[in-house]
Design a protein around this nucleic acid. Sequence first.
DNA 1: TATAAGTTTAAGACTTTTTTAAGACTTAAC
DNA 2: GTTAAGTCTTAAAAAAGTCTTAAACTTATA
Lengths: 225, 225
Amino acid sequence: MDKILVIEDDIYISEMLCALLKQSGYAPVAAYSGTEALLLLPQGGFSLVLLDLMLPGKPGEEVLAEIRARLSLPVIVLTARTDKETTTQLLRSGADDYLAKPFDNDELLARIDVQLRRTTPQKTNKAQLCHKGITLDPDSFDAFIGGERAGLSKREFEILQLMMSHPNKVFTKNNLYESVWGGEFLGDDNTINVHISKLRGKLSAISPDTEYIQTVWGIGFKMSE
Amino acid sequence: MDKILVIEDDIYISEMLCALLKQSGYAPVAAYSGTEALLLLPQGGFSLVLLDLMLPGKPGEEVLAEIRARLSLPVIVLTARTDKETTTQLLRSGADDYLAKPFDNDELLARIDVQLRRTTPQKTNKAQLCHKGITLDPDSFDAFIGGERAGLSKREFEILQLMMSHPNKVFTKNNLYESVWGGEFLGDDNTINVHISKLRGKLSAISPDTEYIQTVWGIGFKMSE
DNA sequence: TATAAGTTTAAGACTTTTTTAAGACTTAAC
DNA sequence: GTTAAGTCTTAAAAAAGTCTTAAACTTATA
């Protein structure tokens, strides 16, 4: 159950929020000032922060900055001010979203969902990698181009998967070796070159005129753009 | 540079969006229908999707669902409808954020920032060097001027990186040799001159009228101001 | 103008990558 | 446990790209 820190000085609103959250299956914790919130946060375990901007003592903006400086937690700001300057400034200074007061309960819940959806590590999400028409299928350990199976071996698949997960990065042989083989790389090894060559062969067997893997001379390999 | 897929059928709005994005340092790619977008997406490399809900052919909601089913990419929806039902429904069905039309440019940029901030994790690594319009990309070991790749070799990159890391310092040949080659400099060597010449050639191939590397007669080289 | 310093070019040396092929190793089936 | 099929590694030659050298040319300084 996700713990949500509700930073709101108005007791009436705070209770309303907490009730709404509890009813929706979250575990709300109320903080009635920014300083209190900053004391509670290090306790840990929070999945999200709801932050009212108008706070006694420390202004909400400062609280936001301190949360951001210390933790990586989604923060949704509640504010009465809806002018563009305020709201864009808020987003720029670290808020993940904001909601204008008075807000709609359903919308608040939806926005909380959105934030938690991304924070909570992908449960089912075997997001399959796609790049330049290559689709990777982690279930069959194989790659497809336009529906055609490439027939990769395990190492070939792992190399391609690694490279496609960061399509702009150049991977040194060292990188590749340590990630795919998991050991230390002893410079004078041609194994990776051979695997890259085979991989290219299988990819270009499907699509002969496309370059998929680029060599960066003296450095390594990367996915073509 | 982050690639953003702009799915918008109205050419006027699409161009406006692309111009705005380009100006802000993103690389926009326009798709004028949902089906086109779904063809472009497997090409990969996109960091974010801007999706207009009103689309010819396939409705935006379906496009959203298909994107969600296939990839894990932030999607910001642009919509004219602002009723609570529509918007919460949108967020629940996979949108990461939405913006009501007509939207404010700054707000759009701020929201894009928010989404990218979380998707692009620890961009903490080597902050890319910029100077006089040259951007160094340590991932691809190359330099860019206005988005154009220079195609540097390893040594050329290392020289430029060294010089750009202290743009006001004058580097003697000795300095350069010892830093880039790592050995002792034996005065009568022309190698560095040749490399500087090649480097200048590649930079001015992109931007012929700008001087990037200055000669300090009798001493060495430095970045131009 | 003479001289020292910097620039450019082109060719060959050198290094890195690609490809091929053969043998070693793994895996799965019998 | 043996066999068969496929995968991985090693080695070596060929190909491709980069670096260095040397020489001719240009520019700045005294």
